[in-house]
Amino acid sequence: MALQEKYKELIDAATAAGVNDLNVREQEGVLYIDGASSGAVKQQLWDTYERLDPNYASGDVVMNINSVAGVVEGTKLKVTTNSSNLNIRKGPSTNDDIVGKAARHEVVTLVGKENDQWWLIKTDQGEQGYSFTQYLTPVE
């Protein structure tokens, strides 16, 4: 219960924001927070978490807020890499060969979801393959 006290503000914020399927539980010194929300709510919750535990140094929270659960096939996605091009690969892992690249801020189309980390995408030039979802943001 101690962690739920420490992160009360975070849990309250998640509840107040209406996070779907919110699931909070404490196990072996780690507080697990799962749920689904919009990208904006996810960002807000992460900022709250960072404020309560600066630099995430305590290692006592695992927060998995899925902000892309509702994204369906055909959705336009913007490439949001830090600076480089996005690799498009033959299969859903970095061990698979690169079959194409998408430029930063290029808009691609979601073809299918392999899992939460890898999506099958298609560029306007017709290149198709798997990319890491970390660098894809739905165009809203």
Binding site: E28, G29, V30, K42, W46, D47, E50, N55, Y56, A57, G59, D60, V62, M63, N64, N66, N82, D116, Q117, Q134
Partner: peptide, 24 residues
Amino acid sequence: ANLQKLMMVLNALKPKKVDNQLVI
């Protein structure tokens, strides 16, 4: 600037915990 982004991705992989010993 990259720490939060990295933590978001790692937390989504369903780890037991993330032991962050990074120098910021």
